[in-house]
Write a protein that binds this DNA or RNA. Structure first.
Lengths: 216, 216
DNA sequence: GTCTATATACAGATAGAC
DNA sequence: GTCTATCTGTATATAGAC
């Protein structure tokens, strides 16, 4: 069905950067629900102000669009993490910072955890920029090992523990629809809920890794 | 392309229960990769000894097949949990049992975590038997509260903590393809790896919830 | 740059032979 | 109960007008 003239873009309202961005935003939401395989270009277009043809004009294919979404999402992420300057903090402080940062990021972009999970499950992480994963986890692992050496943390296997830490955070966002029944009528993404979840996770994780003589 | 006669089922090798089970097994694997939306009936059929038409003969539609897979998977799960008799254990013992049981289940059926995550992300948990979620989490929440009352556990918010506990476990299985780079050449699903992950998680969680005067 | 219209391919589901 | 063949809708991607 043709667009009504009122919605058609005139020369004056055309803006390639804005359109590209609109498409990326809409695509992120769509990919966060179904992943690459189940996402529909038609559905992405419907979320934007432009038609499906524009997706192919700017991104050539659904797959390339997916790549672009991943790129943008995790590049941003990486930049933020680098600004944390974890090395200048004590290991416990750094750990609290990392946890708090994870929840803040996910709160700002609730799609992130789902996209990551879907990409891992559906595509074995093929489209996930490996650098990103490595840097993010390496930061956490390094921090844990620094804490063991300093005596702040108990002896622990840093890689397994890093997974447990990230997992307790990510799961809340991944499974939130299956967890909804625990808080009927509450929005699990509202700042208050996320704040409570974040605080509770921080307490559990800190208590879980601190050396016993430091635990109080 | 027609089947070669050697693979065609003769009257003697026909078995409706076996065929149904084969389809369910294959479907579970397929659904665990793409979820309901991205799963292909053709692909499910290819994993079995029979053709796509059999899926419709036994299950009528892709959606009903999906329902049947969920049903079978989580009914089994529920039966197992009921056999744990958590009430007869001290809260710390019960918690260790629950964690160990989670890893055992996921180890036996590595698809479970992915199916749950995909169902939550793609379908908002619409097809997930709500009873199951409630019973499983209620068991864990009840156990945590019992532990707070007995003084074994520190004061904590049981629902948020339950999510953190389940999350740290589930994430390993959900994101394993994105975590592979941490152990190059290792199979993250081999019993030794899962055993290590399970032990590390148990240590962290126990230390994370025990009251400080009980922590050693 | 943006649109409509359409080619092409694929996937869910059914009909009917064996 | 199992198969082949096919109908029908839908999805990716392109052609070409504006």
């Amino acid at each position: 069905m043709p667009k009504p003239n009122s919605l058609r873009k005139t020369a004056a309202t055309r803006d390639s950067e804005a359109t590209k961005c609109q498409i990326l935003d809409a695509a992120m939401i769509e990919f966060a629900v179904g992943g690459l395989a189940a996402a529909r270009t038609e559905s992405i277009a419907a979320k934007t102000g432009v038609t499906k043809a524009m997706i192919y004009y700017y991104f050539n294919s659904k797959e390339e669009l997916y790549r672009a979404v991943m790129q943008r999402c995790f590049n941003e992420d990486l930049q933020l993490v680098k600004q944390l300057n974890l090395d200048q903090l004590t290991p416990p402080q750094a750990l609290v910072t990392v946890i708090s940062n994870m929840y803040q990021k996910m709160c700002k972009r609730p799609q992130m955890a789902s996209i990551l999970a879907l990409e891992s499950i559906q595509n074995s992480g093929k489209y996930y920029p490996q650098q990103t994963a490595e840097i993010l986890f390496d930061q956490l692992i390094g921090l844990l090992e620094r804490g063991i050496d300093s005596g702040d943390f108990r002896p622990l296997e840093s890689r397994h523990t890093a997974i447990n830490i990230v997992g307790s955070c990510a799961f809340y966002f991944i499974a939130r629809e299956n967890l909804q029944h625990m808080w009927p009528g509450q929005d699990l993404l509202c700042p208050e809920m996320i704040d409570r979840q974040s605080k509770e996770a921080t307490k559990m994780i800190l208590a879980g890794v601190l050396a016993s003589d430091k635990s109080v």
